[in-house]
């Protein structure tokens, strides 16, 4: 099938790398990435909040970039590498941000937490963490209706500080 063929409303084959594993899938053009993850692949860690790109609960990493999965069509993810909250822990050990969220009590109901953590993973890579104000501004795409923002910023600052520390020690 040529790349530009009209494929109609039938399913389309795609290949993605999902949490480190290659997956060959058949998706309908109308299926969003969020619905693919939750309804077809049983990866329910990624949450559906507003479903309109306004709350950030559905945030996942696509090729390392934080993206609202509710506004992405699954069919357009062919060839991409996607990391969800389920893919952050390594060898049975929590990602440092997951541990920091627990340590700092950075949630109440927990519904926004997977999106907050995926967003924060990318935030730290982007480097917009030089002040609490900057962290807050660059986490503005993730709403927390319980209002755990103060502790969320604490958790992120903690991980940022711990990442800096070894570098400083090495410099000494």
């Amino acid at each position: 099938m040529p790349a530009h063929a009209i494929v109609g409303t039938q399913t389309v084959p795609i290949e993605i790398t999902l949490n480190g594993k290659r997956r060959s899938l058949e998706v309908s053009p109308v299926t969003t990435l969020l619905d693919l993850l939750r309804n077809h692949l049983d990866l329910t860690g990624t949450k559906k909040g507003c479903d309109h790109g306004q709350c950030g609960a559905c945030t996942v990493l696509i090729d390392g970039q934080r993206i609202n999965s509710c506004l992405q069509l699954a069919v357009m993810q062919d060839g991409k590498s996607i990391t969800t909250i389920e893919g952050l822990a390594q060898d049975g050990r929590l990602h440092p941000l997951q541990a920091a969220f627990i340590e700092h009590d950075a949630f109440q109901c927990g519904y926004c937490t997977p999106g907050q953590i995926c967003s924060a993973v990318a935030l730290i890579e982007e480097g917009h963490t030089t002040s609490r104000e900057e962290i807050r501004e660059f986490m503005s795409g993730n709403l927390c209706r319980c209002g755990a923002y103060t502790n969320i910023v604490d958790a992120i600052e903690d991980v940022v500080g711990r990442r800096r520390q070894p570098v400083q020690e090495a410099a000494e």
Partner: peptide, 9 residues
């Protein structure tokens, strides 16, 4: 609503 998908090259 359902739609056709066309990946342009």
């Amino acid at each position: 609503k359902r739609f056709s998908y066309h990946r342009a090259d």
